[in-house]
Design a protein around this nucleic acid. Structure first.
Ligand SMILES: [Mn+2]
Ligand SMILES: [Mn+2]
Ligand SMILES: [Zn+2]
Ligand SMILES: [Zn+2]
Lengths: 159, 159
DNA sequence: GATATAATTGCAACTAGTTGCAAATAGAAC
DNA sequence: GTTCTATTTGCAACTAGTTGCAATTATATC
């Protein structure tokens, strides 16, 4: 991704915040920069580190509060990939989803419209408009499924 | 649910633990009782309270560690319904999933095989065996969708 | 029933994230 | 540029959950 593009993400998000009546603060600019420059999902802690690399006095509560705000506004997506913390990423098109292997932790990215059928069904049957922007499904990837047809237990006894 | 049935859940889970080489402790019996008697998903904190109602000296780390163990073994399912904490429930058949309204927090329970098609597709296309035992999808329920066709913002300015 | 020992628990210290509130400041109005 | 004020930040105290380790105990063996 070009430098040009990265700056654009930040600028667009800031513009959107201003549109909605929010203020442009140095803290927000730094956070949006960090989000815009990321090439993958990042944790709040990592984002705080990157923000502090530029301006060390930024408080963690500000980062957490702004991530919550951005998520609420649908500008970023957040997701727990089973690592004990939530990860954030700028929410851009086209959409995508993730298949996460419980065994090797590999993440397979799949097309955003993979769940279009089921989305339509849920709307028809239950009147429920499901958000299908950015999902994570857990399971076993091909490699791990072939490697271990029998489920291993985590208990010492069975090692 | 009858008293008979409730006790059976606890007994079955304990038996399964013994089979796998784990020990039966008073703490585990109490936790499994609490899980077996629950008529809905419960948080770790609530479960700890219920365990302590019988035996106040049980430590919270024991409850958290055992919940993690039971989940790992697939005996309970855990899920974040967007309330800031994970909720647990005994994992029994037939399976079910949840549709959670972001607006009114209503939870609609749907059939366990609702995702069978997509599960098959993911296996065929990507070789990925997705766990489709107990999913939660977020979105807008019928009522909320009809009540508010325009997305409300959470910003004070727009109130 | 006594003994041995690996699994389990309780404890205390720790970490990640949240919250209430006073101080600072972005942006609007003049 | 000054003034005003609602938003935003920094801070400090708090909460939920985790971790390492020593003490306890469930179970296997005798
Ligand atoms: Mn993603
Ligand atoms: Mn459920
Ligand atoms: Zn794998
Ligand atoms: Zn609703």
């Amino acid at each position: 991704m070009s430098r040009q593009k990265l700056t654009k993400i930040r600028t667009d998000l800031l513009a959107r915040l201003v549109e909605l009546g929010y203020r442009v603060t140095p803290q927000r600019e730094l956070l949006l920069s960090a989000l815009g420059q990321a090439d993958k999902h990042l944790s709040a802690e990592t984002l705080l580190e990157r923000v502090r690399a530029v301006y060390p006095r930024v408080n963690k509560s500000v980062v957490y509060r702004n991530l919550e705000l951005l998520a609420q506004l649908g500008l970023i997506s957040c997701m727990d990939f089973g690592q004990g913390h939530v990860e954030y990423e700028v929410h851009h098109h086209p959409h995508h989803h993730h298949l996460v292997c419980r065994n090797c932790r590999a993440m397979l990215e799949i097309d955003g419209d993979a769940f279009a059928d089921i989305q339509r069904q849920l709307l028809e049957r239950y009147g429920f408009a499901a958000e299908m922007d950015h999902l994570a499904l857990f399971g076993l990837c091909r490699k791990c499924r072939e490697k271990m047809p029998v489920q291993i237990s985590h208990h010492p006894h069975s090692l």
